[in-house]
Simulated scan of single mutants.
Amino acid sequence: MQRLIGLLGRVRERPPSGSAPAPGAAGASELREEGWGGLHSAAASGDLARLQRRWWRKRFRVNGRNAQKQTPLHLACANGHADVVRFLAGKKCQLNPRDNSKKSPLMKAVEHQHKDCVAILLEHGANPDLRGAGGNTALHLAAAIPSKSLVELLLEHNAHIDAQNKMGYTPLAVAITEHCEEMVEFLLQKGADVHARDRHKRTTLMVAVAAGDVNVIRLLLRHGAELSHEDEFGRTALSYARLSGYADIYNQWEEFVNCERTGECSAGSTEGPAVLDSSCSGTTADVPLGAPAMTGADGF
């Protein structure tokens, strides 16, 4: 295994892809208050004083829904009004309602990276493991952003680190597909299952190989990822290296596996091609991985 890690160390990593926008970025409709009345308008604009003044006659509508089935708490979380979130949570409003997109207030706070709102909700007992339309939890979202501080906070409140979405992807697998190397390492350090499989029994190592992410491959191997595991089609990580078009990785792995089987490996045999064609797209035509459903109708 150490020789294999050494081999991969000689392969030039592909250039990091451009930063993708955080999934579920705020839409203008969430940030406008016109068209809303009472509690929704006050919560959306962060007008705590108006919220408090109207409370005595509006309090029975604290869990009321707008056209998107969002409660005042949804709107306060989306816009980062922590004082309003604290006020509403303290008034015993529902903490886990889900809107038209199946997003809870906690998911809204996470996707817009309002950590103070996330902390308040969790302290008041919000469920960190609710699933959106795509089966994604708040932890999937935080891993995809990526935000270590939000992941840490969610884990401190017992979020399931190996929760699977509808594709069977754990937050670790999502971080791999998003090419978030630091998040992958962080989740592994926090105890994420390196052997987790998706609904087609693909391991996290297979996902990383199909993406051509050399640094992530090394991280997974150092944390005990197995080369011999097979998916439902009988393919191993080595098969994925071949199918993905990464000839250098495939050739070096094949040489390593063969010499390990015959016991003929030597110090010199760890030498191999040192260049990975950085023009590779990281996708595989024969075995499409796809990405976790993070947005749109099949998202949260």
Rank of each mutant, 00 (worst) to 15 (best):
G37Y: 05
R218Q: 12
H112N: 00
L154G: 15
R3A: 07
G38I: 00
Y169V: 01
G35S: 02
S149D: 15
G37S: 09
V214W: 13
L141D: 01
A109I: 03
P105V: 00
A274N: 08
C77T: 04
C280S: 10
H124Y: 14
P128L: 08
G191D: 01
L95H: 12
R53C: 11
R202P: 04
I5Q: 05
K201D: 14
F87R: 07
R222Y: 03
F186D: 05
K103N: 02
A225C: 14
G90Q: 14
G9S: 10
E254W: 00
L31G: 05
D162P: 01
E33C: 07
V85Y: 09
A133K: 10
G9Q: 06
P21N: 05
L51E: 06
G168T: 05
S279V: 13
A89H: 05
A142Y: 06
G46L: 12
G299D: 07
L155M: 12
L187V: 02
D213T: 08
V110G: 11
K91P: 02
K108F: 09
R53V: 06
L88R: 05
A142S: 04
A208E: 15
G290D: 09
R261D: 14
V209M: 12
K166H: 01
Q68F: 09
R3Y: 13
A285Q: 11
L220D: 09
A267V: 02
L75G: 03
N100P: 00
E33V: 10
N136V: 00
C280D: 14
D231A: 12
A144G: 05
G212E: 06
A163L: 09
Q113S: 13
R54T: 13
A82C: 05
L150W: 10
A109N: 01
M107T: 03
E123D: 14
H223T: 09
N258F: 09
Q52F: 02
L187W: 04
E34C: 02
V62H: 06
R32P: 04
I5G: 10
P15N: 13
E13I: 10
S147V: 04
R54A: 15
G234Y: 07
S269W: 05
Q52G: 06
M1A: 08
D83S: 13
R14E: 15
H229M: 10
L219Q: 13
S104L: 02
G64S: 04
N127L: 10
D193T: 01
G35E: 09
